[in-house]
Design a protein around this nucleic acid. Structure first.
Lengths: 335, 335
DNA sequence: CGATGCGCTGCGAACGTTTGCAGCGGCCGT
DNA sequence: ACGGCCGCTGCAAACGTTCGCAGCGCATCG
């Protein structure tokens, strides 16, 4: 293994100079730096991370904790985050907690000590999670806790847009199929929806209980939606919408003929199912990127100057084929 | 920060004993071990990873390199791998290379030094990749290189099953929509398909060129497939199949009425699109799990006893609604 | 011309752990 | 009863890096 000592010997300098030439090039004379650099190249020297971390106390790497990598939502966030971390020249360790609060805490406890900070995406037990990474810099995505830096999507605006879209189509009774009980996004969406509904006295919202944020959740919700008498439904995410559509179909009901459906997230599944889903788009890559940016900023800040403002990413309505006026077969042309 | 020294002092032993009580409990007297353990608990001691790595030369963590986390195929493999790593009590660092051979090599170079080994999933430039992690243990998934341990799916058997299924339905001219040029899986599938076709002199296979392994690839292939005169098509993966179906639909063609489609991988999209795809299932979670198992085994083996055999996971045909006899409207009941 | 300062470099001490080696009893076999 | 062995423990030396401190030479200023 080639170490600073070897490089130092070849370059004819001390190991301190080698270290500095690499970490803080501006603090070393040009000629010396060049000598060191060519020695590094010649020997193929690569600094030993562990030693650097041990001595310096920081790792130059960050962590990302997500509930489920197989969920296209989190996969997209993870891609964005990793992309940005790469641009920052730092590593990013991705951990999947399988939607399990216990695993979440455990994963964080394992991850935290070897990182300079962690992005916590849609934590399932935020309090425990934050406790687990005791004091280490953290950025929350789609969650908020008092003074903790965060990044979020504008769920309120999104819900308003979805509701106004449906109302414009003529829907007056709209169901909401909610996500996991502990989900902060779900709470925000409910709140946003209620608020939007309040602005119109001719629209009624029916909130339906907690469902798993996967297809099964949507399937499970379908019969409740039908029974609710709603003519349109907004779901916690696209996967739920897909499950819902699927179950309706087996009951002989058609989307959008019998029910209009609005998904959430515009993950790529939204456009590949039949019918393509009207959905709320949030730029997930960007969400991940922004989170990493904030984390890097937070971690390298002098504890004093933490900017407590929360970047809010726009949520935009994407209209596809899963929404149309209620009971309005004539508009689409007769079969 | 609480260190071994603090624990040692509280437990009334030396730091060596503390270290041993944690790493190799069987080498320490029961009474001593208990004292140490309660001291650990009382102080909330957590070993400093960096120090351990530095001294011991191994990190107790592995790496997983995948081309694209947003691809449900790799997401599933990653989940399996992470799950298994957790069970082994080791960490797993997941890196997404964006299908880019340069990033792949770079990522590996960054990853390798801080891990005990790497799982390389569908590498885009295997030779460079292996060189990049010079000498470190590695397990290949869906790829093979001379004596490197690997895990793979039985593409040959899968292709045979797909072809026999289509032939049994009455298809005689079958197209194959291939994946990326550099894809090993693609080469295996072509070979398997050719071999299977050779067993029957009444079946003809039309191989179509390289396409991106996403929806766009499928969309791009559709017109070629139609022009080829095939009545059935097998695609590189489910996403390609979905794109293909989509493009056919905009041309007014229906699946399976006008063309039967078999996907690959049985990723969850296969069951959620319309029509649900007949596809080749491989247990991706298990693929990831097995890869980690092999890696752990390889890494902890005494260089001499590496088992060079390659576990081959079964590939199973899942029949859904995207395949049926050619031009056989009557079989399905008239509209 | 001497003092002051600054830019650059080297020395050496950490950082917290693992592990080879040796010592110390006690037990067993002869 | 004594030698040897074995199970357990402690000592101390690494592992490769970063960084505070100090020294050195040179230029600038008084």
């Amino acid at each position: 293994m080639v170490t600073v000592h070897d490089v130092a010997r070849l370059a004819g300098v001390s190991i301190s100079t080698v270290s500095r030439a690499i970490a803080t090039p501006e603090k070393v004379a040009d000629a010396t730096r060049d000598r060191v650099q060519s020695a590094v190249r010649e020997l193929g020297y690569r600094p030993n991370r562990a030693a650097a971390v041990l001595r310096a106390g920081r790792s130059g790497a960050y962590g990302l904790v997500v509930p489920d990598l197989a969920n296209p939502y989190f996969a997209a966030v993870a891609k964005g985050a990793q992309e940005r971390a790469r641009e920052h020249g730092t590593g990013l360790f991705i951990v999947d907690t399988d939607e399990d609060p216990d695993l979440e805490a455990e994963a964080i406890r394992a991850l935290a000590p070897q990182t300079d900070g962690v992005v916590l995406c849609s934590p399932r037990a935020a309090a425990r999670a934050i406790e687990a990474l005791d004091g280490r810099p953290v950025v929350l995505v789609n969650h908020d806790v008092d003074g903790v830096p965060a990044v979020e999507a504008d769920h309120r605006g999104g819900m308003r847009r979805a509701l106004e879209h449906l109302r414009a189509l003529g829907h007056r009774r709209i169901a909401y199929v909610g996500g996991p009980e502990r989900s902060w996004s779900d709470r925000r969406r409910r709140a946003g929806l209620a608020e939007a509904a309040n602005r119109y006295d001719d629209v009624e919202v029916v909130e339906l209980g907690a469902f798993r944020p996967q297809m099964e959740g949507g399937q499970a919700s379908a019969d409740l939606v039908v029974a609710s008498g709603a003519t349109a439904v907004i779901t916690f995410n696209d996967l739920v919408a897909v499950g819902l559509v699927d179950r309706l179909r087996t009951r002989g009901l058609d989307v959008p003929r019998d029910l209009s459906v609005v998904g959430c997230d515009d993950s790529y599944v939204a456009s590949l199912v039949t019918p393509p889903l009207t959905t709320l788009r949030v730029d997930l890559r960007r969400l991940g990127r922004t989170a990493v940016d904030r984390l890097v900023a937070t971690a390298s800040a002098t504890a004093s100057d933490v900017t407590p403002d929360v970047p809010v990413l726009d949520v935009e309505l994407v209209v596809r084929s899963s929404t149309r006026p209620p009971g309005a077969d004539h508009l689409e042309g007769a079969p």
